[in-house]
Amino acid sequence: QVALSRTQVCGILREELFQGDAFHQSDTHIFIIMGASGDLAKKKIYPTIWWLFRDGLLPENTFIVGYARSRLTVADIRKQSEPFFKATPEEKLKLEDFFARNSYVAGQYDDAASYQRLNSHMNALHLGSQANRLFYLALPPTVYEAVTKNIHESCMSQIGWNRIIVEKPFGRDLQSSDRLSNHISSLFREDQIYRIDHYLGKEMVQNLMVLRFANRIFGPIWNRDNIACVILTFKEPFGTEGRGGYFDEFGIIRDVMQNHLLQMLCLVAMEKPASTNSDDVRDEKVKVLKCISEVQANNVVLGQYVGNPDGEGEATKGYLDDPTVPRGSTTATFAAVVLYVENERWDGVPFILRCGKALNERKAEVRLQFHDVAGDIFHQQCKRNELVIRVQPNEAVYTKMMTKKPGMFFNPEESELDLTYGNRYKNVKLPDAYERLILDVFCGSQMHFVRSDELREAWRIFTPLLHQIELEKPKPIPYIYGSRGPTEADELMKRVGFQYEGTYKWVNPHKL
């Protein structure tokens, strides 16, 4: 086992960053958080920038500027975001240094004079007029057009580079997404736009490419001749908990499936790229999406959770019991969808996408189930092999396979070949997804960000279904809070070829 401390991990990262040409360590950078008073800024962006600063992973002359409508001070920003920093008493001095680099400007999102004030403020910072500028839009999409237009007109660096990070949702359907994309691309070049999907920053999602293309053993079996089906799962054990009003506007397909799960599907299904260059990788992902037809209604199961009468606390409440959810809402909190990649490698292999709230566990994984062994000599005792990439929690890679049961006879039983990170790298604290992705933006690497043509294809696949749901308002199937979801989803999976045995229990190697 390799035991690495946080300091050692960050030392390795620093070495990698400083050796590259793309990370300008000594240049002045300004990180501007648009929507600095909001939840995302408070819980994710400010803490992430602090962790990067604490670990010495930001360029040395980096300033952080918050911008929002609320009249706040840096002290206010500190008060609301610091509880999420997880700072230790030993880091007190470092924390003071961090907040000394912070400033805040209040202004409207659609007022040109406010942006001119913001620009004057940035120019007044040390070497601010020639600094590289990175704008993070932690804002609702309704203000994107006004904000990007004003940034472009008043706040661009004339000497350094300018980059803009856009948070999902990128529209509600193909038409609104196209409108937003066309607007942003009329102001910024594609190499300046970073559409963030934080799932692409997760260690195991990034590991998929290495697993596939750096190991000879997987190449020959990664196709329709050997793989019976692919299941991509995202499960949350909690409901909307008072935030249903926002969720109800989008629903589970827009929230998770059309982005996170579809991105994971691309990494499983794509061909080997010409290189690890950002556009070479994204070219292959677009090719996969172009091979997927629009979702067919007979390959869809929609569910909505109801309270568990035997549960406790939140578990007793259904989705419609959330006071922020519109009365009688038919918005799905669970969806199972089957897609097919219609190309030579994957023809006929079902890709089953499942996601839901208020389920029995927290889990995100990719599961490849292989065909049955031909010419069975073990009297149907063999179960199908599976390769599982567990994204969260407890990152893991393992192969479910058959071995001989101890004893006199040739009785096979299920076991696993474990390729888990935790076994080799004991207690290594890896940077989280937002840390990686923000560092990628500083480096100018777009590999783990969504390109406009990729986004367009993703919406093309799901828009007809979303429009049909909005028009017909089908009643989702009720499922109990804390269950596996509607049984109809299991029946759909069985119908397209997935075999669920229920006889195997994964042993978490992190707890051995």
Rank of each mutant, 00 (worst) to 15 (best):
F351T: 01
F334E: 01
T487Q: 10
A358W: 00
L439T: 07
K400S: 15
V388P: 01
A458S: 11
V341S: 00
E488A: 08
L265P: 02
E294D: 11
N308K: 11
K400D: 05
Q392Y: 11
G375R: 12
L492Q: 07
K272R: 10
Q381V: 07
N423H: 06
E414K: 11
D321E: 10
F409T: 15
V428L: 12
V300D: 01
H260C: 15
C266K: 02
Y398S: 09
V268L: 08
A489F: 12
A297L: 15
M401T: 04
C266S: 15
R362A: 09
R362D: 08
E294C: 08
K317M: 09
C382D: 04
V450M: 15
Q263E: 05
G485T: 00
M402L: 15
E342W: 06
Q392R: 15
F409G: 15
N259T: 15
P486M: 03
E395T: 13
D310V: 05
D440A: 03
G407F: 14
F370Q: 04
L359H: 05
S445K: 08
E361G: 15
N394R: 13
R484K: 13
V349G: 01
K475H: 11
A336K: 03
F370Y: 10
D255K: 06
G303L: 00
W459G: 14
G375L: 13
Y421C: 15
T316W: 05
G485E: 06
Y305N: 01
K475S: 05
P350Y: 01
P476F: 02
Q380N: 06
E365R: 01
T276L: 09
D310L: 10
C266V: 03
L368N: 01
I292R: 00
N259E: 11
S415T: 09
D347A: 04
S445N: 10
E344S: 06
Q258V: 15
V349T: 03
T420Q: 09
R484M: 10
L289W: 01
W346M: 01
A332N: 06
R327Q: 09
L455F: 02
D490N: 12
R451L: 02
G482M: 03
G482D: 03
E271K: 03
P273C: 02
P509I: 13
L353D: 01
G485N: 03
G313D: 12
E361I: 10
R362W: 02
L439C: 06
K426W: 12
P509Q: 13
Y500W: 06
L289A: 07
E454V: 06
Q499G: 14
M493A: 11
K426D: 15
Q468H: 07
N360W: 00
M264R: 02
N508S: 13
K405E: 14
I438N: 00
G303N: 02
Q258A: 13
M264A: 10
Y305H: 04
K404V: 15
P323A: 12
A297N: 12
I292L: 08
L353M: 09
E361Y: 06
H448W: 13
Q381S: 11
V388C: 12
H260M: 15
Y421N: 14
F409Q: 15
T403M: 06
G311C: 09
V338L: 07
E416L: 12
V300W: 13
V397E: 05
A358C: 07
Y398C: 15
G311D: 02
L339E: 01
P431E: 13
V349A: 01
K426R: 15
P393G: 13
R354F: 07
M401L: 14
H448N: 10
E457N: 03
G328N: 01
G502E: 15
N508E: 14
N259I: 14
P474T: 11
F351I: 07
K285F: 12
E361F: 04
F449N: 03
C266D: 00
L419P: 04
G482R: 04
